[in-house]
Write a protein that binds this DNA or RNA. Sequence first.
DNA 1: GTCTATAACGCGATAGAC
DNA 2: GTCTATCGCGTTATAGAC
Lengths: 203, 203
Amino acid sequence: MMRTIDPAKHEARRRNIVNAAAGLFAAKGFERTTTAEICKAAGTSTGNLFHYFPNKRAIFLAVFEEDGDEKAEFLARAVAGDDPWAALLEVVDLLAAPAAEPTVPPLVMEAMVQAYRDPEVEAALSRDNAEEHAAIAALLSRAAEAGQIDPGLDPVGTATWIQTLIGSLYTGAATNPGFEPAEQLPTLHLILRRFLRAEPGPS
Amino acid sequence: MMRTIDPAKHEARRRNIVNAAAGLFAAKGFERTTTAEICKAAGTSTGNLFHYFPNKRAIFLAVFEEDGDEKAEFLARAVAGDDPWAALLEVVDLLAAPAAEPTVPPLVMEAMVQAYRDPEVEAALSRDNAEEHAAIAALLSRAAEAGQIDPGLDPVGTATWIQTLIGSLYTGAATNPGFEPAEQLPTLHLILRRFLRAEPGPS
DNA sequence: GTCTATAACGCGATAGAC
DNA sequence: GTCTATCGCGTTATAGAC
């Protein structure tokens, strides 16, 4: 008598719940989304939902616990590449890409707000942030050595600014109705090019 | 027997409630702040609170309905000034200044999130946004005419980017613990100078 | 024995009657 | 200005299906 059955079905059901919840969290926010709504959207029921997750917060956290591995690999490969400047632009594009999906920017906003009160959300976000920051800072250092960017810039502080510039695509998409992150990418590249590649120069 | 009393006292009491609520909204967010807490913090009681405001949302809205006049004046004066580039930097500093106050960034985050669902909040924010955007775009046009910045930049799109850059100071302060907007202002100026004043140049 | 569904509890918040 | 009715939420206790 197969004791524990297919973990595949378990995962599928779990994912189904997470996906349904993600849509609701994006549309209505965490607190205004009720567990009953999640159940209805996922086609399941209360008892079942609390069989997969201990509480509502755990569902929210699960939304953001994905695809960490692929990104880490990509970042590692980029840092190790030959052309730091080109790699930097690729990293920027990679990190900016999800902003074009309609549900992601509101979810990111919600996560930033929740990170304020919930230490677990805070931890999850800062882990991701630190990973990206390290990769960007490393690329900036290497690009400076290679003479591709202004060597006078502090890699740590500059990396933070690049992250906030990418973040602007998310906040912009979440707040301005007509803001299309994909359209803004060329401008972001232009800003970075002019900011980073500028001659040290006077004043 | 004076029927309707001093509107001054009314306003003071109202302001008192709004200020107390603002602190709580900043610390705990809108939904997690209870009307009872607001009452306690404001030193009043439930019935009295609902005498001044119809519901909790109205209190939240009142937090953001202030000092509109002074800012509008300042913007108008800046646009009319002699040196558009200097005026632009002054406008940036003015709009960035509140980010240094500890309670403001979380409140702004909360407002951006609430603007998604609440049309009234959305309206209030976009009114402010449009005002600032118009001023910045006008300054960009004048600075381009005066040969102070790259004339190839689209004033409308560039103004939006400048707004998001300023917004980064708020989101950065709200998310990164060690992020000090005041310290980042010089870097913001540097980014703007290099981005905007660059020669049109090739590539 | 693992998964799913129903139903109900306790809590706390809003709002309005007094 | 106090007090409290009403309602909706997250959660759990209980019981049935695969």
